[in-house]
């Protein structure tokens, strides 16, 4: 007789309701476009329909879904690494901060695009950190990389994301006020510092 498994107790529709939006955002942050994010999300739930019943521990459903989506993404991108470019921001320039108000003024989709533009090695841990509030240990387990690697990638990834937020804010400010005074705002000065 088959033992009781996760699929027996988890309603598929509820599972979709609970996770499709967050999986889509994760997929978008990885792939950087709607079509691939859509496909990756759908594929993840298809995988659940096929194999979710093998999961014995219902508390691991979220982790299972995110891991599966990430693996699907890796499969899609295997041998396509040349589409990614390593951001070569010098490590010594990672201390700059961004006022939270700048983020408040940023459109959510634009922020997700900025996240998606970061190099993949930083993007995946950073997405799980911001989108899912995962700890470095949870991220390490999900991405199957050492905790020390996650920590360093989070640190670098956060710096890269801030740089992008800063740059965008600077462009917006410059667009809104192209006067020398406008460009000498505190935010603009920090961008210039950041970019060396």
């Amino acid at each position: 007789m088959r033992s009781r498994t996760t699929n027996d107790t988890i309603d598929f529709e509820k599972l979709v309701d609970d996770y499709y939006a967050s999986l889509y955002r994760f997929a978008y942050s990885l792939s950087g476009n709607e079509a691939d994010a859509w496909d990756l999300t759908q594929q993840t739930f298809s995988r659940w329909a096929e194999k979710g019943h093998t999961l014995r521990d219902a508390s691991k459903v979220k982790s299972w879904l995110f891991t599966t989506l990430y693996r699907e993404f890796l499969k899609w991108n295997r041998q396509s690494k040349n589409i990614f470019s390593i951001d070569d921001t010098p490590a010594g320039e990672e201390r700059h901060s961004v006022p939270a108000e700048v983020v408040d003024r940023t459109d959510a989709s634009a922020l997700l695009d900025m996240l998606a533009e970061i190099d993949e090695v930083y993007r995946a841990p950073l997405s799980l950190f911001y989108l899912e509030d995962m700890t470095y240990k949870e991220i390490a387990a999900l991405l199957e990389i050492p905790t020390g690697t996650v920590m360093s990638r989070l640190s670098r990834g956060k710096a890269l994301l801030r740089k992008r937020i800063f740059s965008r804010e600077g462009e917006t400010s410059a667009g809104a006020d192209s006067s020398p005074a406008g460009q000498s705002s505190a935010g603009r000065t920090e961008i210039d510092n950041e970019q060396g």
Binding site: F12, V16, Y24, E101, A108, L111, Y130, K158
Partner: peptide, 26 residues
């Protein structure tokens, strides 16, 4: 700042018809 970024990212919308497509696909 982290909280502002996380809060904002979590409001990024998913396509309205994705849910229906997933359910229809099963």
């Amino acid at each position: 700042l982290d909280r502002a970024i996380a809060s904002k990212l979590k409001t990024a919308p998913a396509p309205a018809d994705l849910r229906a497509a997933i359910l229809a696909g099963r």
